[in-house]
Nucleic acid binder design. Sequence first.
DNA 1: GTCTATAAAGTGATAGAC
DNA 2: GTCTATCACTTTATAGAC
Lengths: 231, 231
Amino acid sequence: MRDIKLSESQPKQRLLAAAEQLFAEKGFESVAVRDVTQLAKANVAAVNYHFGSRDRLVALVVARYLAPFNQERLDRLDVLERRAPSKVVPIEEIIHALIRPLVGMVGKTELSEALFCKLLGRILALPEEALSAEVVEQMKVSNNRFMRAIGKVLPTVPQEDLQWRMHFLVGSLVHLLTHQDWLRSLSNGTSGSPALEVMLGRFVRFAAAGLREGVEIEVSAPTGPQALFDF
Amino acid sequence: MRDIKLSESQPKQRLLAAAEQLFAEKGFESVAVRDVTQLAKANVAAVNYHFGSRDRLVALVVARYLAPFNQERLDRLDVLERRAPSKVVPIEEIIHALIRPLVGMVGKTELSEALFCKLLGRILALPEEALSAEVVEQMKVSNNRFMRAIGKVLPTVPQEDLQWRMHFLVGSLVHLLTHQDWLRSLSNGTSGSPALEVMLGRFVRFAAAGLREGVEIEVSAPTGPQALFDF
DNA sequence: GTCTATAAAGTGATAGAC
DNA sequence: GTCTATCACTTTATAGAC
């Protein structure tokens, strides 16, 4: 599990990459400053010099992933709604807007796909108190926009039910990202760890069905929802 | 958040109750032995004397909740299958067998309902390496039994898909139990924290729809699935 | 910017008196 | 069983030399 790029000559970048890898592997609470500096082959004091404190390093990593994630979510939702100003946007496409940003982000990271997933799962599972006020606000804005969009597609479902179902959806996503070990173990290796793309495909079908529960018109779900969206 | 019963005269019971409360509130990794002894009004050495070590205390708490939880899950599934040996068991009732044990357990604990939920959510979100071999085996047995039962109700869904959907289901449950703070915050207080019963009702509908995704016959879902089951 | 040295507080665990 | 005292170690952070 040593996939830090030591080619990064700047110590600050090395420290950041090392921190992200370790946070992904062991969680934010279980990583000591010394673990980071050791993996980054930097000095013990380097984290405090470059980032101020351990807490500020954590906050930086969280914001560095959460901000663009939420931004691209909103951008994708904008595209969807602009494309169909009057028509309702299919629920599958809304869910895609909610999760596909992961695929774009994994390409830009130094982390392996598996570690990137774990890191984002851990970030999305943080309690509200662990996040800065700005990040919490971002989460609320994103949630509000998506809740309104989903409310338009499923007008017969009470808003409170939708809020709960969104909560369940996030839980499924977090678990998918963070705990693939259990899936492999429980299925006796039958269900391996496929590419992120494939996992998200399964996820969309599950989540769409859950959100739509109780809505009579089930005809709007073609077998290949991805085909409706040009990535 | 101080709801430890100091009436428990036995120090060992006080320590256990204090540990459970703190683990629920802050997570297993963020609780020091000294936090536990302090809340239990016991000596610093008490945890090591009564439980051997911090790790053994954690393992005890985990096993104390996970073992009866899994056991009652299996018992309930037995009842369902014995009741309908030839007929298929509705998916809603299988999910009920999977989650209703929580309701019975919350009554037997000294913890408040909110803390009980958090504790069980944290336990269900532990990585496999953090669990003893026995507990892992229990989880596998339970999973296999339920996977077979669900496979019988949804024979047209490939087993691998069902395994993934079960994984999503567990994620939703963990999130529901552990992160209600986000739900309250994101809904601007609209979606409060109702009784466990109500939350599980919402959960069953969401999870059942997700598991059933793609199965044509959608007629078998009455509006009140709870009414089919006599608790 | 990078290093060593060290501070100051916290960690789990234990020996030994009572 | 319960307590105090303490060990051996780790933690984050910083002062000051280079």
